[in-house]
Design a protein around this nucleic acid. Structure first.
Lengths: 339, 339
DNA sequence: GTGAAAGCGCTAACAC
DNA sequence: GTGTTAGCGCTTTCAC
């Protein structure tokens, strides 16, 4: 493996000092303009690439962000990443992406590694295990390091930190309210994994909305699922014994699972059971029937996170909590024809 | 922003040389076992984290891989990444993920940046524009640098390089053959974006299969789509004028789009039109009716890429082409009841 | 206008 | 068993 070309190699070629080459390549005005051009040309020709590692060491900034995510294989997470890249690529930043698979141990390990790598900030969506076990020392540790830490999507209970989240509570409220307005009176909820804030907030929004409209909460109309369509099959089956006339699912995938079960029982959607999901994945409108959903602007979460980071390194001191408004998208799965 | 603790700080504390601290932290046998323990304990207590940047500079390896992808928001790509992480995290590698959005310019920019960052290898899934414009100098340049370069998923036409791909041709052949065996005689194809190898290979598999079974190829049964469900709507509409009795879609998303159009025309699936997609995304089995699909083991592509990289840095010289077998998953969307 | 030297944080070869 | 020194690739201050 041939060694990459260094500034010294070029200096030897031109019989001058490395510092001259450095200046020339950085367009330093002190260097003779012609010498500059010649050197720059030569450098590109032989394929010289600055070693940014040495610069990181020197400048104490790596121009790299750490991103820790519980998973990657959902539209929501990958959209967040795309949103971040959109803003950060032009700003010269690279992303170190780490998938924890909801494991606390991996989250810790990645956190340490990112710190060791001297990333300029860490953007994190906490793993379920971290919530479950309530083991936050790695988080507190990072905070005490004065390493910018931005919570994306899933928030962390602590005095004002930097966070960019969607208002899951409000989104759930909107979804439930819509079902009520469509005439549903026995609204079931496919509850996400316990302990995850996202699940809790959506459940809370659902509950509070029922209460506001003075509808009773039936515990038998609650079923737990993970975030997959698969997990919703059994859960929906169990709900079917209790005649729901509406279902609010913790995300769109579980609604796809529920719809399959409902169709197979020859129950009509939305006439007999109306459905609303969450996330508004691209396939939601291609469900049968097209699935109503709460959009949480996944891409925007990524963009806002990136902008928040840029503001921070630009000297912004105070921490900021950004909460994005969810948007209810109404499609056939919930359009009961009522007066 | 408080400076991170360095080995020098610890040395000052213990009134000894930095090298002693370095040795102690690395469990060097020469150091008194007790001193070692004391120093290690102290280091963890005050939250010392080795600066891996300086190590990268020293060892000329960054323990980081560059991953360049055209997009991130599809099951296939994000699964590949998850597969890579699964293998590479335990091996101590971090991933620099770059999304090109199918843009050649971004691909170049990212490539340069990754080289400048001295990543230990680059795993790339080429952008459409790179194929279209046939501008490969950035690729050739990387190759000439002796920087390990692994082509994932979308391959590069050149003498034996390292590549991990799925046999798209065979997958398409299987899908088409299955439709023929189900009695389809006028099989339409939703052709992916022009120029992309994946699209071309699938089209070729479809064509060759028709030929093998001596079925004519009807140009009017070909429609072009991007990889989204949305793009398939118009394309499928245009196909409907030509009475296809089967559709092979370039991926599952476009089949979701096609199915919506077909359902709205009250045409029965699979009786009148049978469908087969590609990728076997998790939602395929929750389509209405459940969608047959060719699985291309996305996660495994990532795993194999990671393993190939590990083998390479372990000294394996020859380049390797790994082609993963696609698997046809038959569901209701293509199960015509025939004798 | 250009060179020499120091230093970012760490390790390893070489002393003692 | 521990200290000294050099050096990874680059920039920058200070000379000249």
């Amino acid at each position: 493996m041939s060694q990459p070309i260094s500034i010294k190699d070029i200096a030897r070629k031109f019989k001058c000092a490395p510092s001259t080459i450095s200046r020339a390549l950085n367009d330093h005005p002190a260097i003779n303009i012609e010498t500059r051009k010649t050197i720059q040309e030569y450098a590109t020709r032989i394929g010289y690439q600055k070693n940014t590692i040495s610069l990181s060491l020197l400048n104490k900034q790596s121009k790299t962000l750490g991103v820790i995510l519980p998973t990657m294989a959902h539209f929501h997470e990958s959209s967040m990443v795309e949103g971040m890249e959109k803003i950060l690529q032009p700003a010269g930043y690279l992303l170190n992406i780490c998938v924890t698979n909801e494991s606390h141990a991996l989250e810790r390990a990645y956190m340490d590694r990112l710190v060791a790598n001297r990333v300029d900030a860490i953007c994190i969506s906490l793993s379920q295990e971290t919530y479950d076990k309530n083991r936050n020392d790695h988080i507190d540790h990072a905070i005490s390091r004065a390493l910018p830490l931005i919570f994306m999507d899933r928030f962390y209970h602590a005095q004002n930190l930097d966070q960019v989240i969607t208002d899951d509570y409000q989104g759930a409220f909107l979804a439930t309210e819509h079902l009520i307005q469509m005439g549903c009176r026995r609204i079931a909820h496919l509850h996400g994994p316990k302990g995850i804030t996202v699940s809790q907030q959506r459940f809370k929004g659902y509950l509070d909305c029922l209460q506001k409209y003075q509808l009773p909460f039936y515990p038998e109309l609650l079923a737990h699922v993970s975030f997959s369509a698969d997990s919703a099959v059994e859960a929906t089956m169990s709900l079917m014994d209790h005649q729901p006339d509406g279902i609010f699912g913790v995300n769109d995938e579980v609604c796809f699972g529920a719809m399959k079960v409902i169709r197979e029982k020859n129950i009509r959607i939305p006439e007999e059971i109306a459905l609303v999901g969450f996330d508004d994945i691209p396939l939601a409108q291609f469900a049968y029937p097209p699935l109503s959903s709460v959009s949480r602007q996944s891409r925007k979460i990524g963009e806002e996170t990136a902008l928040l980071f840029l503001a921070k390194i630009d000297g912004q001191q105070e921490n900021k909590q950004i909460s994005l408004e969810p948007q209810l998208i109404i499609r056939e799965s919930s359009k009961k024809r009522i007066i």
